[in-house]
Write a protein that binds this DNA or RNA. Structure first.
Lengths: 141, 141
DNA sequence: TACTAACTTTGTAATAGTTTCAATTATGTT
DNA sequence: AACATAATTGAAACTATTACAAAGTTAGTA
């Protein structure tokens, strides 16, 4: 959770000019924590900023990813999702029934399983399956 | 590595009719092991079967995934890659320099880190970084 | 305060990957 | 051979994303 002051500070630290739209994008991704797609960000932002363009949302997301504030999740083939990068490394779980994405732990030292000579920059771990709610529904019938 | 007889047997076991195109698709994904995109499969297949359509390649890939013979890899945002599902679970490493994808181990019991109540159907682990070849190039200069 | 350069935003058009669909062709069974 | 079923084709549609040029905004400086 980041308030306005914190968000502006984060952007300054990462050399990103805190425009109103970038703040809105960051606010949504950082504080709603739904690991949204670009389109979900756009639709939400558009409520408060009816003039914002889709391109600006893409630009903002890319800028924030480049700056290291956000992170892209290649967790489904249809579209890229975004997550706050300013937190402890973690993994994800996507419910194949309701589509929700949940944060999970990430075991330390996972990258040690790669063969010698490979240089690991990023470790991506995600699970697919049923969340507790959907799991109980599907066993109820 | 699967020879023609083995591929036909695999398809029979999975209730998929072994058409000439499906065999060609399976042959490429199973035996070349480059974790290809649909388009790479199409381009390669098209050399031997000039009349094959892109749609047939997509159909074949989907059929084989549904049947459990192949597996989709959400390893990059631009396109889906395909891998043989008939082997021990493993993880992947994508070199961000040359784009090649390498098989790595997958630690057993990883799914135990998810919170209680979640039902894990699939575990996906991949790494990004530099392969030995590209790593040595980039430190040479 | 006005000027300038750099940056941000916009809207449109283009592109890439994938899916849909109806028509055609091939296959297996009786 | 005739029939039902399944596979293949090609064109068009669709979705997510990117490219681009024009217009607008901002920060710093004179």
């Amino acid at each position: 959770m980041l308030n306005d002051t914190q968000m502006i500070e984060v952007l300054h630290q990462h050399r990103v000019r805190p425009s109103i739209h970038r703040l809105a994008v960051l606010d949504y991704v950082a504080n709603r924590r739904t690991h949204p797609t670009a389109d979900e960000v756009f639709s939400t932002i558009a409520v408060d900023f009816p003039t914002v363009s889709r391109t600006t949302v893409y630009n903002s997301l890319h800028t924030l990813v480049e700056a290291g504030v956000l992170r892209e999740l290649d967790i489904e083939s249809t579209s890229t999702r975004y997550d706050l990068a300013l937190q402890l490394p973690h993994s994800h779980f996507r419910c194949s029934c309701c589509g929700k994405i949940f944060d999970m732990q990430l075991p330390a030292g996972l990258e040690n399983i790669v063969m010698p000579g490979f240089k690991v920059d990023a470790t991506n771990l995600f699970f697919a399956g049923l969340c507790p709610e959907c799991a109980s529904k599907s066993t109820d019938n």
